[in-house]
């Protein structure tokens, strides 16, 4: 009885759980099946950041990672120098 009440009022329904889990896993699936997209993203990021800083393109790393129950775009971009701005 108590379990039933708990299920009714507190815990999340499995339909919603399924939706959340799918939305998470599909971000990874979609990213993992398209290295071309990651490559494009990398190029775009280089372009933008290079306006402000000199970066080490060879050593930079970009990846999608799981952080708790969300997905994060993690970038490690060594900065070699700052550009001067007028």
């Amino acid at each position: 009885m108590l379990d039933s009440i708990k299920r009714m009022f507190s815990s999340e329904k499995s339909g919603k759980v399924a939706k959340k889990r799918l939305q998470m896993v599909l971000i990874q699936d979609r990213a993992s099946v398209s290295p071309e997209v990651m490559e494009k993203l990398r190029d775009d990021i280089i372009q933008v950041i290079s306006k402000y800083m000199v970066i080490d393109k060879a050593d930079m790393e970009i990846s999608l990672e799981n952080v708790d129950d969300s997905v994060a775009l993690v970038a490690n971009i060594p900065v070699q120098n700052m550009r001067h701005h007028r």
Partner: peptide, 17 residues
Amino acid sequence: AMVDSGEMMDMDDINDI
């Protein structure tokens, strides 16, 4: 019946995904 009780994804859920 399962959709109704929240135990199955419905069309809107799958559309969102």
